[in-house]
């Protein structure tokens, strides 16, 4: 399936996609979105901890969270579903999440070209002005559409 019939809606996608697979296992939830950004929630859970000494979420599931939010931000910005693959993703951990806190991944697609989609954003635990991590990534478009070529490396 290359396109949804209507404009891509991250909330509709989340209700279907987060029932199963890796995102379902993590228990991801839709939180909010804008024109070119999507925020998802990763609820706190005891079996997702990364430190025996403190009840804070591991960094692994936070990467899954921002990866998924990035993809959905791209589709939201594009207004349609495009086949993409993560090329790279960088996460700078500013501080640990608070104990027993949900973590939110808020990602924005700030640049779209025929071949690549560029995203950045944060992970936070309730206050977007006090992020737990900053994130940057690039996604490749698997089947580029014609026209609007600005990035010729593929």
């Amino acid at each position: 399936m290359d396109r949804y019939p209507d404009k891509f809606d991250p909330q509709v996608m989340a209700s279907a996609a987060f029932q199963r697979s890796h995102t379902g296992w993590l228990g991801l939830r839709y939180s909010d979105h804008g024109e070119d950004w999507v925020e998802l929630e990763l609820p706190w859970r005891a079996d997702l901890l990364g430190d025996e000494r403190r009840p804070v979420l591991a960094s692994g599931p936070i990467i899954s969270l921002v990866d998924m939010a990035s993809g959905m931000a791209i589709w939201t910005a594009a207004g349609t579903f495009v086949q993409i693959a993560t090329l790279d993703l960088r996460v700078d951990y500013n501080r640990p999440a608070r104990e027993h806190a949900s973590v939110f991944g808020r990602m924005r697609c700030y640049r779209r070209t025929r071949s690549a989609m560029f995203v950045n954003g944060i992970a936070h635990d309730g206050d977007i002005d006090d992020p737990i991590a900053h994130v940057a990534g690039v996604f490749m478009v698997i089947r580029p559409t014609k026209g609007d070529v600005r990035w010729k490396n593929s």
Partner: peptide, 18 residues
């Protein structure tokens, strides 16, 4: 397994990162 699956038949990038 389904727990690590992203798009059908492939690992989710987050699971690979984990």
């Amino acid at each position: 397994s389904a727990d690590v699956e992203g798009r059908p038949g492939a690992y989710h990038g987050g699971a690979t990162a984990g």
